[in-house]
């Protein structure tokens, strides 16, 4: 049985997360927050969407409640449910209710994965009503102005079953977070993996090469996150080529030819 933490304090972000802005995402997000507008983050996996939310929450000094959506995530997983203990039933708030009650930031990661019935609760929260109806308790919460709803999705997926409806997407302020520019990405990899600039530069070059293969067989190029993983392994003493093979090549594809080609790129650069 799912139990969500009741303590909102745990959701505050204590330390400043490392985040280097790509463009104007921070001022836009702050402006959206000031006006009670919900946020939609678009971008490929590992491009910094979740990290940006952490950074935003830290900047706003609000707790951040993240829900990773999966295809069985239903409304009651978000809103809450009754549990039984010793013959007594008691109500447990779901993450969304918790966020609304405490004026937190509720971040639904990969929202298109969630079941379609979740739109029932997302829609009224995402427009100017800013309301959350808890059907089972007959309660109607109105979100305080500190509350913010944010969702993310990856437009690269081509599944027709995972498309976002117009009625949903037109409620959000959409921010596109793509892979950072090479210079910026280098700094990020350097900092996150704790490796030297030389190696970070090579990793970023490899990533750029794999991104060039996107239309030629790869569904997506190597994300910044993969580069950080590779860097972390290298720092632990794994040989750079091996580290890249296991974190980048094998993560990207199963196709033998592509695996070979990516490995060749890696061995050229490293």
């Amino acid at each position: 049985m799912v139990t969500h933490s009741q303590k909102i304090e745990e959701h505050f972000i204590a330390e400043k997360p490392f985040y280097l802005p790509q463009k104007n995402e921070l001022p836009v997000a702050l402006a959206a927050y000031a006006n009670g507008l919900p946020l939609l983050l678009k971008g490929p996996t590992g491009s910094g969407k979740s990290r940006f939310m952490q950074f935003l929450a830290w900047t706003l000094k609000r707790p951040l409640i993240t829900v990773s959506c999966h295809d069985d995530l239903s409304t009651s997983d978000l809103v809450g449910r009754y549990l039984i203990r010793g013959g007594e039933t008691f109500w447990v708030d779901g993450p969304m209710t918790l966020a609304v009650r405490h004026g937190a930031i509720c971040y639904l990661d990969e929202v298109v994965e969630a079941r379609k019935d979740t739109t029932v609760v997302i829609h009224p929260l995402a427009d100017d009503r800013r309301q959350l109806a808890i059907e089972k308790r007959g309660e109607l919460l109105t979100a305080p102005k500190e509350f913010m709803l944010a969702v993310s999705y990856n437009p690269g997926y081509q599944s027709v079953l995972k498309d976002m409806k117009q009625s949903t997407r037109q409620r959000f302020v959409a921010l596109e977070l793509n892979y950072p520019d090479p210079g910026l990405e280098e700094k990020i990899v350097c900092h996150e993996a704790g490796i030297d600039e030389q190696l970070a530069r090579s990793l970023v070059r490899i990533a750029a090469m794999t991104r060039g293969l996107k239309d030629a067989g790869l569904q997506e190029g190597a994300s910044t996150r993969l580069l950080v993983h590779a860097g972390l392994l290298v720092r632990e003493g794994i040989l750079p080529r091996d580290a890249c093979h296991v974190t980048i090549t094998q993560a990207l594809t199963d196709d033998d030819e592509l695996v070979g080609a990516i490995d060749e790129m890696i061995s050229s650069v490293l």
């Binding site: 070979g260 080609a261 990516i262 060749e264 790129m265 050229s268």
Partner: peptide, 14 residues
């Protein structure tokens, strides 16, 4: 060819 074509596309970006 197969592997090499991917490689060239990757390094050249076009």
């Amino acid at each position: 060819r197969g592997k090499l074509a991917h490689y060239v596309r990757g390094i050249s970006g076009r």
